[in-house]
């Protein structure tokens, strides 16, 4: 009963805030609604017993990604209303297309069937908490064994993403002053300081 109530609560907030993300006029509000969506989605995961994913969602998406969004949106001076102008003419079309897709998906899900042997096919049997293993531990057990391939390739993907970010944004500008500690340490008085005796009245 209580879980049912919580589910409908979370789900409703997810939907409403998701709609708000795309309808809010102020982009900062959009991002804030996005964060709200993430939080509620995390709640849904907890209801499913997937507390690890829920926490990852909060930490990564809310803590890092969404906040980054927020910074970007606040720092860039983009007139979102101008951007919208052009797009507005596609709204009717978009609504029709979206409506059709929605109808179809509803039809699909309402008549959803599972394969008779679907449960047998699941590679990692659903971890029951009765066995005393949290799903964090369960993920830990398969992530580096059965799924080491996907894990390693994901690592490569992140590496490529990093290279990409550096290639596309990093540039060495001339005239940037940086602190070089080694240089500072290595400086000697004699290199930089010259003592001149100046007789008074003649100038340097």
């Amino acid at each position: 009963m209580l879980t049912g109530l919580a589910f409908y609560l979370f789900a409703a907030v997810v939907l409403v805030s998701a709609i708000a993300v795309i309808t809010a006029r102020n982009p900062v509000h959009s991002v804030l609604f996005l964060i709200l969506t993430f939080f509620n989605a995390a709640g849904l995961f907890i209801l499913l017993g997937a507390e690890f994913i829920a926490m990852i969602l909060v930490i990564v998406y809310v803590g890092a990604v969404a906040v980054l969004f927020l910074f970007v949106v606040m720092m860039l001076d983009i007139s979102f209303s101008d951007l919208r102008k052009g797009a507005m003419q596609y709204v009717p079309m978009g609504l029709i297309i979206g409506g059709i897709l929605l109808a179809e998906l509803i039809a699909v899900f309402s008549a959803w069937k599972f394969a008779p042997n679907a449960a047998d096919n699941i590679a990692v049997p659903f971890v029951q908490s009765a066995e005393g293993i949290t799903n964090t531990e369960a993920i830990g057990r398969v992530l580096y064994t059965d799924y080491v391939f996907a894990f390693q390739v994901s690592g490569l993907i992140l590496l490529v993403a990093m290279i990409g970010a550096i290639v596309l944004t990093h540039r060495t500008r001339p005239g940037v002053r940086k602190q070089k500690v080694a240089d500072q340490q290595a400086r000697k008085k004699s290199d930089v300081l010259e003592i001149k005796k100046v007789t008074s009245g003649t100038g340097v």
Partner: peptide, 24 residues
């Protein structure tokens, strides 16, 4: 539908019968 992402098992499972969801 199938409960798996493995190609071989998918191949076996999908050959049983299928629903609209699979086609989508």
């Amino acid at each position: 539908y199938a409960g798996t992402t493995n190609f071989a098992i998918l191949g076996d499972t999908l050959s049983h019968n299928m629903s609209l969801g699979v086609i989508i």
